[in-house]
Computed example of a mutant assay.
Amino acid sequence: MSERAAPFYCPYCGDEDLRPSEAGHGAWDCAACNRAFKLSFLGLLARGTASPKEAPSDD
């Protein structure tokens, strides 16, 4: 497993003073707004690689 990805800023206040939380994997504490949040990867979207719809012609 790779290293944990770190967020660059708090999703609530935008500050960068984040610390890994003791709550577990993916949990972070923001020292600026005193909030805790958790990040997790849900999976890949099943949309595929379909091309955009073509515009109808004016013929």
Rank of each mutant, 00 (worst) to 15 (best):
W28T: 03
W28I: 08
R4N: 09
D29T: 10
Y9H: 11
L45P: 14
A5T: 15
W28V: 01
L42C: 12
F41M: 02
A55Q: 09
L42D: 00
D58I: 10
D59S: 11
K53G: 12
N34F: 09
M1N: 02
F37P: 13
H25E: 11
E22G: 07
T49A: 00
S21R: 01
A27S: 14
L44H: 14
E3Y: 06
Y9T: 12
G26A: 01
A36Y: 04
S51Q: 09
D59P: 13
C33V: 07
L44V: 01
S57A: 12
A5Q: 12
P7C: 08
H25Y: 02
A27P: 00
A5F: 00
G24H: 01
K38I: 12
A23H: 15
D17S: 10
C33S: 04
A5R: 02
R47D: 09
K53M: 11
A27W: 15
H25G: 02
M1P: 04
A46Q: 14
P52Q: 05
A32E: 03
P52E: 08
Y12M: 06
A5L: 15
T49C: 00
H25L: 00
A32M: 00
A55L: 11
L39P: 10
K53W: 01
A23G: 04
A23C: 06
K38H: 08
C13T: 08
P11K: 07
R4C: 07
F41S: 06
S40F: 04
S51R: 12
D15Y: 09
K38Q: 15
D17V: 03
A31L: 13
A27C: 05
D17I: 08
L39D: 08
E22P: 03
F41C: 03
A5K: 09
A50H: 11
A23R: 06
D59W: 10
R4W: 03
C33Q: 01
L39W: 06
Y9A: 11
L42F: 06
G24W: 01
A23Y: 05
A55N: 09
G43R: 00
E3P: 00
G43N: 03
G43H: 02
R47S: 11
A50K: 12
C33G: 03
S40E: 05
H25Q: 09
D17A: 05
P7M: 03
D17G: 02
Y12K: 13
C33I: 09
C30L: 06
C13F: 02
Y9G: 08
S2F: 04
D59H: 09
A55K: 11
